[in-house]
Design a protein around this nucleic acid. Structure first.
Length: 271
DNA sequence: CCACCGTCCTGGCTGC
DNA sequence: TGCAGCCAGGACGGTG
Protein backbone atom coordinates (compact mmCIF):
# COMPACT_ATOMS: atom_id res chain seq x y z
CA UNK A 1 0.00 0.00 0.00
CA UNK A 2 1.57 3.19 -1.14
CA UNK A 3 2.87 5.45 1.61
CA UNK A 4 5.11 8.51 1.37
CA UNK A 5 8.22 6.74 -0.02
CA UNK A 6 6.19 4.79 -2.56
CA UNK A 7 4.23 7.81 -3.70
CA UNK A 8 7.48 9.76 -4.01
CA UNK A 9 9.02 6.97 -6.12
CA UNK A 10 5.92 6.95 -8.31
CA UNK A 11 6.18 10.72 -8.65
CA UNK A 12 9.79 10.45 -9.78
CA UNK A 13 8.85 7.70 -12.23
CA UNK A 14 5.97 9.77 -13.61
CA UNK A 15 7.67 13.13 -13.85
CA UNK A 16 9.49 12.72 -17.16
CA UNK A 17 6.48 10.90 -18.58
CA UNK A 18 3.73 13.40 -17.78
CA UNK A 19 5.18 16.84 -17.14
CA UNK A 20 4.73 18.84 -20.34
CA UNK A 21 2.06 16.52 -21.68
CA UNK A 22 -1.46 17.74 -22.30
CA UNK A 23 -4.52 15.76 -21.28
CA UNK A 24 -6.94 15.15 -24.12
CA UNK A 25 -9.58 13.43 -22.01
CA UNK A 26 -10.25 10.62 -19.57
CA UNK A 27 -12.10 7.32 -19.43
CA UNK A 28 -13.59 6.57 -16.02
CA UNK A 29 -14.46 2.92 -15.67
CA UNK A 30 -15.20 3.44 -11.98
CA UNK A 31 -16.63 6.96 -11.75
CA UNK A 32 -17.21 6.77 -8.00
CA UNK A 33 -13.49 7.35 -7.51
CA UNK A 34 -14.09 10.92 -8.67
CA UNK A 35 -14.80 13.00 -5.55
CA UNK A 36 -14.93 16.40 -7.12
CA UNK A 37 -16.24 17.91 -9.37
CA UNK A 38 -19.16 16.13 -11.09
CA UNK A 39 -18.26 13.73 -13.87
CA UNK A 40 -19.70 16.17 -16.38
CA UNK A 41 -17.60 19.09 -15.14
CA UNK A 42 -14.53 16.89 -14.86
CA UNK A 43 -14.78 15.79 -18.47
CA UNK A 44 -15.28 19.38 -19.55
CA UNK A 45 -12.40 20.83 -17.53
CA UNK A 46 -9.61 18.31 -17.99
CA UNK A 47 -9.04 18.34 -21.77
CA UNK A 48 -6.40 20.73 -23.14
CA UNK A 49 -4.83 21.22 -19.75
CA UNK A 50 -1.10 20.70 -19.70
CA UNK A 51 0.77 19.24 -16.73
CA UNK A 52 2.98 22.07 -15.54
CA UNK A 53 4.30 20.36 -12.41
CA UNK A 54 3.98 17.08 -10.53
CA UNK A 55 4.19 17.40 -6.76
CA UNK A 56 3.49 15.26 -3.75
CA UNK A 57 2.00 16.11 -0.38
CA UNK A 58 1.80 13.25 2.11
CA UNK A 59 0.34 10.35 0.14
CA UNK A 60 -1.36 12.63 -2.40
CA UNK A 61 -0.04 13.21 -5.92
CA UNK A 62 -0.67 16.71 -7.25
CA UNK A 63 -0.72 17.27 -11.00
CA UNK A 64 -0.62 21.04 -11.26
CA UNK A 65 -2.19 22.03 -14.55
CA UNK A 66 -1.56 25.14 -16.58
CA UNK A 67 -5.06 26.58 -16.18
CA UNK A 68 -4.69 26.76 -12.39
CA UNK A 69 -6.50 23.50 -11.68
CA UNK A 70 -4.87 20.61 -9.83
CA UNK A 71 -5.62 16.98 -10.55
CA UNK A 72 -5.16 15.13 -7.26
CA UNK A 73 -4.83 11.36 -6.95
CA UNK A 74 -4.77 9.21 -3.82
CA UNK A 75 -3.83 5.56 -4.32
CA UNK A 76 -5.15 4.30 -0.95
CA UNK A 77 -4.60 0.56 -0.49
CA UNK A 78 -4.08 -0.97 -3.88
CA UNK A 79 -3.69 1.86 -6.37
CA UNK A 80 -0.84 2.11 -8.83
CA UNK A 81 -0.03 4.31 -11.80
CA UNK A 82 1.68 3.54 -15.07
CA UNK A 83 2.26 5.43 -18.28
CA UNK A 84 1.85 3.30 -21.38
CA UNK A 85 1.31 3.60 -25.06
CA UNK A 86 -2.37 3.86 -25.99
CA UNK A 87 -2.05 0.60 -27.87
CA UNK A 88 -0.58 -1.38 -24.94
CA UNK A 89 -2.78 -4.05 -23.42
CA UNK A 90 -5.02 -2.88 -20.60
CA UNK A 91 -4.64 -4.37 -17.13
CA UNK A 92 -8.13 -5.64 -16.14
CA UNK A 93 -8.09 -3.54 -12.95
CA UNK A 94 -7.54 -0.27 -14.78
CA UNK A 95 -10.16 2.05 -13.31
CA UNK A 96 -9.27 5.34 -14.96
CA UNK A 97 -7.37 6.18 -18.11
CA UNK A 98 -6.07 9.71 -18.60
CA UNK A 99 -5.37 10.28 -22.27
CA UNK A 100 -2.38 12.40 -23.20
CA UNK A 101 -1.58 14.11 -26.47
CA UNK A 102 1.55 12.14 -27.32
CA UNK A 103 -0.47 8.93 -27.72
CA UNK A 104 0.37 7.67 -24.24
CA UNK A 105 -1.96 7.12 -21.31
CA UNK A 106 -1.66 7.60 -17.59
CA UNK A 107 -3.44 4.55 -16.19
CA UNK A 108 -4.83 4.33 -12.66
CA UNK A 109 -4.92 0.65 -11.74
CA UNK A 110 -6.78 -0.12 -8.52
CA UNK A 111 -8.16 -3.62 -7.83
CA UNK A 112 -10.08 -2.65 -4.68
CA UNK A 113 -11.48 0.59 -6.03
CA UNK A 114 -10.59 2.61 -2.96
CA UNK A 115 -8.50 5.21 -4.76
CA UNK A 116 -9.74 8.76 -5.12
CA UNK A 117 -9.57 11.53 -7.72
CA UNK A 118 -10.18 15.27 -7.47
CA UNK A 119 -9.90 18.14 -9.92
CA UNK A 120 -9.91 21.36 -7.93
CA UNK A 121 -8.94 24.98 -8.12
CA UNK A 122 -8.08 25.13 -4.45
CA UNK A 123 -5.85 22.28 -3.31
CA UNK A 124 -6.48 23.15 0.32
CA UNK A 125 -9.92 21.62 0.06
CA UNK A 126 -8.23 18.23 -0.28
CA UNK A 127 -4.88 18.53 1.50
CA UNK A 128 -5.50 21.47 3.81
CA UNK A 129 -5.50 19.51 7.04
CA UNK A 130 -2.31 17.57 6.51
CA UNK A 131 0.48 17.84 9.05
CA UNK A 132 4.08 18.71 8.16
CA UNK A 133 6.09 16.89 5.51
CA UNK A 134 8.45 14.74 7.58
CA UNK A 135 11.44 15.30 5.29
CA UNK A 136 11.14 19.08 5.15
CA UNK A 137 13.04 21.41 7.47
CA UNK A 138 9.80 22.60 9.06
CA UNK A 139 9.45 19.17 10.67
CA UNK A 140 11.68 19.76 13.67
CA UNK A 141 12.19 17.78 16.86
CA UNK A 142 10.28 20.54 18.64
CA UNK A 143 7.35 20.17 16.25
CA UNK A 144 7.29 16.43 16.92
CA UNK A 145 7.58 16.93 20.67
CA UNK A 146 4.62 19.28 20.72
CA UNK A 147 2.56 16.84 18.63
CA UNK A 148 3.29 14.12 21.18
CA UNK A 149 2.49 16.14 24.29
CA UNK A 150 -0.80 15.40 26.01
CA UNK A 151 -1.57 12.65 23.53
CA UNK A 152 -2.49 9.40 25.23
CA UNK A 153 -2.71 7.42 21.99
CA UNK A 154 -0.32 4.57 21.17
CA UNK A 155 2.68 6.05 19.39
CA UNK A 156 2.00 3.77 16.41
CA UNK A 157 -1.48 5.24 16.00
CA UNK A 158 -0.17 8.79 16.24
CA UNK A 159 2.44 8.21 13.55
CA UNK A 160 -0.36 7.15 11.21
CA UNK A 161 -2.40 10.34 11.80
CA UNK A 162 -2.09 12.44 8.66
CA UNK A 163 -2.88 15.68 10.53
CA UNK A 164 0.15 15.04 12.76
CA UNK A 165 2.68 13.99 10.12
CA UNK A 166 1.79 13.62 6.46
CA UNK A 167 2.55 10.41 4.62
CA UNK A 168 3.29 7.69 7.18
CA UNK A 169 1.03 4.62 7.02
CA UNK A 170 0.77 1.26 8.69
CA UNK A 171 3.90 -0.35 7.33
CA UNK A 172 6.38 2.52 7.63
CA UNK A 173 5.10 3.30 11.13
CA UNK A 174 6.24 -0.18 12.18
CA UNK A 175 9.56 0.29 10.40
CA UNK A 176 10.17 3.63 12.11
CA UNK A 177 9.36 2.28 15.56
CA UNK A 178 11.66 -0.68 15.00
CA UNK A 179 14.49 1.67 14.07
CA UNK A 180 13.76 3.86 17.08
CA UNK A 181 13.48 0.89 19.42
CA UNK A 182 10.06 1.96 20.63
CA UNK A 183 7.13 -0.28 21.49
CA UNK A 184 4.13 0.49 19.22
CA UNK A 185 1.76 0.61 22.19
CA UNK A 186 3.83 3.12 24.13
CA UNK A 187 1.74 6.16 24.92
CA UNK A 188 2.74 9.14 22.76
CA UNK A 189 3.03 11.50 25.72
CA UNK A 190 5.36 9.14 27.59
CA UNK A 191 8.38 9.55 25.34
CA UNK A 192 11.46 11.08 26.96
CA UNK A 193 13.34 13.88 25.25
CA UNK A 194 15.93 11.39 24.09
CA UNK A 195 13.28 9.02 22.75
CA UNK A 196 11.59 11.87 20.91
CA UNK A 197 14.87 12.82 19.27
CA UNK A 198 15.45 9.19 18.33
CA UNK A 199 11.97 8.92 16.86
CA UNK A 200 12.47 12.09 14.85
CA UNK A 201 15.75 10.74 13.48
CA UNK A 202 14.17 7.35 12.71
CA UNK A 203 11.31 8.99 10.78
CA UNK A 204 13.74 10.87 8.56
CA UNK A 205 16.20 7.99 8.16
CA UNK A 206 13.62 5.32 7.35
CA UNK A 207 11.67 7.46 4.89
CA UNK A 208 14.66 8.90 3.06
CA UNK A 209 16.39 5.52 2.87
CA UNK A 210 13.22 3.95 1.45
CA UNK A 211 12.92 6.68 -1.19
CA UNK A 212 16.56 6.24 -2.11
CA UNK A 213 16.25 2.45 -2.47
CA UNK A 214 12.94 2.62 -4.32
CA UNK A 215 14.25 5.14 -6.82
CA UNK A 216 17.40 3.06 -7.37
CA UNK A 217 15.15 0.12 -8.27
CA UNK A 218 13.22 2.40 -10.54
CA UNK A 219 13.98 3.84 -13.91
CA UNK A 220 12.64 0.96 -16.02
CA UNK A 221 9.14 0.91 -17.44
CA UNK A 222 7.17 0.82 -14.19
CA UNK A 223 7.56 1.74 -10.53
CA UNK A 224 8.68 -0.93 -8.01
CA UNK A 225 6.06 -3.35 -6.69
CA UNK A 226 5.08 -4.20 -3.16
CA UNK A 227 7.15 -7.37 -3.23
CA UNK A 228 10.25 -5.50 -4.44
CA UNK A 229 9.78 -3.32 -1.44
CA UNK A 230 9.26 -6.12 1.08
CA UNK A 231 12.29 -7.98 -0.22
CA UNK A 232 14.75 -5.15 -0.38
CA UNK A 233 13.69 -2.36 1.93
CA UNK A 234 11.57 -3.38 4.89
CA UNK A 235 13.35 -4.30 8.10
CA UNK A 236 10.50 -6.28 9.62
CA UNK A 237 9.07 -9.36 7.90
CA UNK A 238 5.28 -8.98 7.83
CA UNK A 239 4.15 -12.55 8.18
CA UNK A 240 3.72 -15.03 10.99
CA UNK A 241 6.61 -17.07 12.31
CA UNK A 242 9.38 -14.97 10.77
CA UNK A 243 12.31 -13.89 12.85
CA UNK A 244 13.87 -10.53 13.57
CA UNK A 245 16.66 -9.57 11.17
CA UNK A 246 18.62 -7.98 14.01
CA UNK A 247 18.37 -10.55 16.81
CA UNK A 248 16.56 -13.54 15.22
CA UNK A 249 13.90 -13.73 17.92
CA UNK A 250 10.36 -14.29 16.60
CA UNK A 251 8.46 -11.28 15.31
CA UNK A 252 5.23 -10.57 17.21
CA UNK A 253 1.97 -9.51 15.67
CA UNK A 254 -0.50 -7.43 17.64
CA UNK A 255 -3.39 -5.21 16.64
CA UNK A 256 -3.11 -1.49 17.29
CA UNK A 257 -6.28 0.46 16.50
CA UNK A 258 -7.42 -2.36 14.28
CA UNK A 259 -4.21 -2.40 12.24
CA UNK A 260 -1.83 -5.32 11.98
CA UNK A 261 1.34 -4.35 13.82
CA UNK A 262 4.61 -6.27 13.65
CA UNK A 263 7.44 -5.78 16.07
CA UNK A 264 10.34 -7.50 17.75
CA UNK A 265 9.70 -7.65 21.51
CA UNK A 266 13.43 -7.76 22.24
CA UNK A 267 14.20 -4.74 20.14
CA UNK A 268 11.28 -2.47 20.89
CA UNK A 269 11.60 -1.85 24.61
CA UNK A 270 8.45 -1.77 26.71
CA UNK A 271 5.16 0.06 26.46
C1' DC B 1 -9.86 13.51 24.16
C1' DC B 2 -10.04 8.70 22.95
C1' DA B 3 -11.65 4.14 21.36
C1' DC B 4 -14.31 1.84 18.41
C1' DC B 5 -17.45 0.95 14.60
C1' DG B 6 -19.22 1.10 9.86
C1' DT B 7 -18.36 2.43 5.05
C1' DC B 8 -16.04 1.80 0.85
C1' DC B 9 -13.92 -2.58 -2.00
C1' DT B 10 -12.36 -7.29 -3.77
C1' DG B 11 -8.12 -10.45 -4.31
C1' DG B 12 -6.31 -13.84 -2.03
C1' DC B 13 -5.98 -16.54 1.80
C1' DT B 14 -7.94 -19.83 5.42
C1' DG B 15 -10.57 -23.52 6.74
C1' DC B 16 -13.91 -26.96 6.13
C1' DT C 1 -10.44 -29.98 -5.26
C1' DG C 2 -14.02 -26.75 -4.46
C1' DC C 3 -16.13 -23.22 -2.31
C1' DA C 4 -17.76 -20.13 1.41
C1' DG C 5 -16.29 -16.70 4.26
C1' DC C 6 -13.34 -13.36 5.94
C1' DC C 7 -9.30 -10.38 6.29
C1' DA C 8 -6.45 -6.48 4.67
C1' DG C 9 -6.61 -1.17 5.72
C1' DG C 10 -6.52 4.64 4.40
C1' DA C 11 -9.63 8.12 5.14
C1' DC C 12 -13.75 9.70 6.96
C1' DG C 13 -17.91 10.09 9.58
C1' DG C 14 -20.53 8.80 13.53
C1' DT C 15 -21.20 7.24 18.40
C1' DG C 16 -20.37 6.38 23.30
Amino acid sequence: MPELPDVEAIRIYLMPRVVGQTFTGATLNWPRALREPSLEDFLLSLPDQKVAELARRGKYLLFRLDRADTLILHLRMTGSLVVMSSSAELNPFTRTVFHMDNDTQLRFIDPRKLGAIWLVEDERKVIGKLGPEPLEPSFTVEALASALSDRKVPIKALLCEQEVIAGIGNIYADEILFQAGLHPMKSADSLSEKETEGLHRAIQEILSRAIQLLTELLPLESPPTESDEAASILLIPRSKGQSCSACSSPIQRITVRGRGTYFCPKFHGSR
